Simulated scan of single mutants.
Amino acid sequence: MEFQDVVRRRRMVRKFTDEPVADESLRRVLRNALRGPSAGFSQGQGFLVLTGEELERFWEFGASWAPASVTTAPVAIVPLSVKNAYLDRYAKPDKGFAAGDDSWWRVPYWDVDTGMAAMLILQTAVDEGLGAVFFGLAPESVERVHSEFGVPEDHDPIGVIALGHGDEPGPTPGSSATTIRRRDFSEVIRFGHW
């Protein structure tokens, strides 16, 4: 598939068939996530992949902010941001910042880079002929992700990606994709000066 087709076709899919995701496709999706930008090549991301019984346990508490139909997805990927990897990397001699000092980071690149990895997952899903949706985790669910699945405390979930074969022909009628127009290029983009 051409890249422009991937970009045009990418949308949030909220309902899935019961067809499993091929292991080869899942691994390609995950390998591509590792190709995202990484400030200082800190590589401060982790990905918790849930299927089968683990996924069923996750859906018991993890989809409270998502439509119920999302729980039909056969795979959930939890992108995890690891701030300490960035602080450790930038304390090395070639960067020269104080160990553990995050005061100079105006933007938390550990979250930005993890978000970029999540976008690569969403785009690769399209290229694989799959559907996917990114949704947030309720604050009370974050602690359960750590305790239920042994996620280290310094790995912070930025959200969840449900992945599978989409069971929607297009945007759901009445959804924001059908009721709110996409902002025009000229409303968003400025060249040289706002």
Rank of each mutant, 00 (worst) to 15 (best):
F61K: 04
T124F: 03
T51A: 07
M12E: 12
A33S: 11
G129F: 09
E24G: 11
K92V: 03
S69Y: 01
N84H: 14
T17A: 09
D18H: 12
V21R: 00
P93D: 15
R57N: 07
S42K: 10
F97N: 07
I121D: 06
L50S: 05
L26E: 07
R35F: 12
L87Q: 03
S69D: 05
A63D: 06
R11H: 09
F58M: 06
A73T: 03
D88A: 14
R28G: 12
G36W: 01
V112T: 12
A63N: 12
T71P: 01
A39T: 10
T17W: 02
G52L: 04
R11N: 01
F47L: 15
V112S: 08
A66Y: 08
L30G: 00
G115P: 00
G62V: 02
G44R: 06
A118Y: 00
R57V: 05
P79Y: 06
F61Q: 05
V7C: 09
R27S: 11
T124P: 01
P74Y: 07
P74S: 06
K92L: 15
Y109R: 05
Y86W: 11
G96M: 04
P37V: 07
D101M: 00
R9I: 13
L26S: 08
A99R: 12
L50I: 01
E24P: 03
K95G: 06
D102L: 04
D111A: 12
P108M: 07
V49C: 05
I121C: 09
